[in-house]
Design a protein around this nucleic acid. Structure first.
Lengths: 209, 209
DNA sequence: GCAGAGCGGAACGATCCGTTCCACTGCTAG
DNA sequence: CTAGCAGTGGAACGGATCGTTCCGCTCTGC
């Protein structure tokens, strides 16, 4: 039952990644020491695996993107267009994947692998949206998905499981609101308005005028 | 046309408060120097008026609460219950009052005056909700309002005016989603789940398990 | 004119955080 | 069986950030 050093090390791989996910999900600006503490390991164990904070966050984001893609592919297999879209959205919200991808933007420097995954993820999401569009209210756009996910990610209480419950509640409101009602007001989000976080400008500030 | 020193000082009162609102709306963790810079004044001009960052934030929050109350009272005068509720929600979202009140929680130490205003604001909001409830889907609760506002506040792009436009778009989705559909899933938020930010615990972290 | 209110911004000290470094431990290869 | 080293914990360091203070200047209101 006593595990060897190498096995323990291998296990730490997962423990650390899980801890990092928990910590950065809760607060994307969390210090790296919080990850080590939560994982129950020293800081060295972290730096043995990742070149730095950037590297860890990038790995986490890539992991999130893979989940996103997997979720989209699984939902894509559903026959009915709307059901597929709904399953996709609920799956992504349930896994809190948004907090691991878009939300982490700006906290680390991107990557080509990451960019490629992002393109693929986006294509899948757009496809799912298009299949559901016939039953959606007028004016809805695939670009709206990002914003809807952003809104769901904003629902947060201290307890993780309770957060999930509450998000299921409000994603229901959003989904029903996407079908009911007339034409959506205001121009839909443009592409550039969804990716501004990646811009080289100031970190998390916002500018007016 | 050249204003005197005292008039200039009086004007700075408003300039500084407006700058503070803009800056902390964009990023609640913004440094105080950013406020001075945006107002085009030195840091001294700030500290002449406010005892410290806490004081400034508290003033800002109180200001926001007053806006909230005013919005609720204005909407309360509308005859139709649902129309009143809708006007209230749209008004609050438009003024971005949520970012000035709930969102600022935890960044400064409360106040009795503030607590009293908060109680009054909550009472008004609940009253508006109750009047609209007959036309709302089953299971909706006044406690949901806070969460809906939180979701709207999460919609954010660099440009302030564009942010408002987008929020109008999504508040429409939410409002329509509040009427359509069957019973809402999951337990509604409890009171304690909405006020956890004020707790004495760790600043902005989140705990699991 | 002149006292001082109001102000700009440099300077300071506290805190936080990413990263490095070193001593130690106990497995594992041979 | 043992020597070497992968893996580790955590203290220490240096840089960055930010709230607050302070000093010298300006320009007004009397």
């Amino acid at each position: 039952m006593a595990v060897g050093r190498t096995q323990q090390a291998a296990r730490n791989n997962d423990v650390i990644l899980a801890a990092a996910r928990d910590v950065f999900l809760a607060d994307k600006r969390a210090p790296i020491s919080a990850v080590a503490e939560r994982a129950g390991v020293g800081i060295s164990a972290l730096y043995r695996r990742y070149a730095g904070k950037d590297d860890l966050l990038r790995t986490l984001c890539q992991d999130g993107l893979r989940h996103f893609i997997a979720e989209a592919e699984r939902a894509g297999a559903i026959d009915d267009g709307w059901d597929a879209f709904e399953a996709f959205l609920r799956g992504v919200v349930d896994a809190d994947v948004h907090s691991l991808t878009v939300h982490l933007a700006g906290t680390f420097t991107p990557d080509e692998q990451l960019a490629a995954d992002a393109v693929r993820a986006n294509a899948l999401a757009v496809a799912l949206f298009e299949r559901a569009r016939p039953r959606m209210r007028a004016g809805a756009t695939a670009a709206d998905i990002t914003m809807l996910l952003e809104m769901c990610a904003a629902v947060r209480v201290p307890d993780t499981e309770r957060t999930r419950e509450l998000r299921r509640r409000y994603v229901t409101v959003l989904l029903d609101g996407l079908r009911a009602g007339g034409e959506l007001p205001g121009p839909a989000p443009a592409v550039g308005e969804l990716t501004w976080r990646w811009n080289p400008g100031q970190p998390t500030k916002t500018q007016n005028r």
